[in-house]
């Protein structure tokens, strides 16, 4: 359907007494996303944009995305946007917020960016308690460069640089940086969500909304991890990748709030925060 046909069809439905339940927010541009089919980035982008739309803060929002699959996020969000060097988004966001305290500032980073090359910037921005929102998309792999091992690649998981599976003796352990950040006094809200089902999307959106609302409180970093898929990197169909994610990523990266309103969330075992949560070994 051409654009005009779509608009015509929508108008017809409204004329027939239908009400609009859902349509793409205007805070996303009409640019076609460059992400692979079924990629969680698209859904996560949409949720962030919907939150900006619903809060009415499009004119006060500045986004930052660095190198990785989300490097061209600036084409999709209709807000002022900065593209950072690999790993440095939290440093940019720190200065944007400090020099423009009325702005809502968010970073949008992948696992290689936030948890490998940008570890120092991530930890120090969180530890300083910058009043920013950080969106962290964790799909356990370097997507943009062609599926190499990420800091979050699971033990046993095959990638372009771990062709026989991630081996702890050779490659070390998957990094649960979100748990690590929750132990820092500068983080106010730390949660892990996903976007593969309607129910997960609802929860993820509520988390992102909270993470943006928290900027008004000036109490520190609000950090939302989205455990996501990488169909191309995992070499699976999108639907199979979502299933594999639920079966293998979730046991290692448990979904739910870790820290809420500056306090460790209810039901969170303190042992998990000191990284003794058992890691599973996957075979893929």
């Amino acid at each position: 359907m051409a654009n005009t046909d779509i608009e015509q069809r929508k108008q017809e439905l409204l004329n027939q007494g239908y009400t609009e339940v859902y349509t793409k927010t205007k805070v996303l541009t009409d640019a076609v996303l460059h992400y692979c089919p079924g990629c969680g980035h698209g859904t996560t982008h949409r949720l962030v944009a919907e939150v900006i739309d619903e809060m009415g803060i499009q004119d006060k929002t500045v986004g930052v995305s660095p190198v990785g699959c989300s490097v061209m996020a600036y084409n999709y969000f209709d807000v002022d946007f900065q593209e950072a060097a690999h790993g440095r988004a939290p440093a940019l966001a720190t200065a944007i917020k400090r020099l423009n305290p009325d702005c809502f500032v968010f970073t949008y980073q992948g696992d290689g960016d936030l948890a490998a090359i940008g570890t120092a910037e991530t930890i120090h921005a969180c530890n300083r308690g910058e009043n920013i929102t950080m969106i962290f998309v964790n799909n356990g792999i370097y997507g943009m460069t062609g599926g190499q091992m990420a800091p979050t690649t699971l033990v046993g998981m095959k990638s372009a640089t771990t062709p026989y599976g991630r081996n702890v003796a050779l490659n070390g352990y998957p990094l649960r940086i979100t748990e690590l950040l929750a132990t820092l006094p500068g983080t106010y809200y730390v949660t892990r969500q996903s976007v593969q089902t309607p129910a997960a999307v609802r929860k993820a959106k509520a988390a992102i909304r909270k993470a943006f609302e928290n900027q008004k409180l000036q109490k520190g970093v609000s950090f939302v991890e989205i455990v996501s898929n990488c169909n191309s990197g995992w070499k699976m169909t999108p639907v199979a990748a979502n299933k594999w994610m639920e079966e293998n990523m979730f046991p290692n990266y448990p979904i739910g709030d870790i820290k809420v309103d500056g306090k460790i969330a209810e039901g969170i075992d303190a042992n998990r925060l000191v990284l003794s949560h058992p890691l599973t070994v996957v075979n893929k």
């Binding site: 779509i6 929508k10 439905l13 409204l14 027939q16 007494g17 239908y18 009400t19 609009e20 339940v21 859902y22 349509t23 793409k24 927010t25 996303l28 076609v32 996303l33 992400y35 089919p37 079924g38 990629c39 969680g40 980035h41 698209g42 859904t43 949409r46 976007v195 593969q196 089902t197 309607p198 999307v201 609802r202």
Partner: peptide, 18 residues
Amino acid sequence: CASCAMVCPDGVISVYKK
């Protein structure tokens, strides 16, 4: 119910109901 639109990564689905 808009479940399809909620999980669509490319935001290509608009949903109407009566």
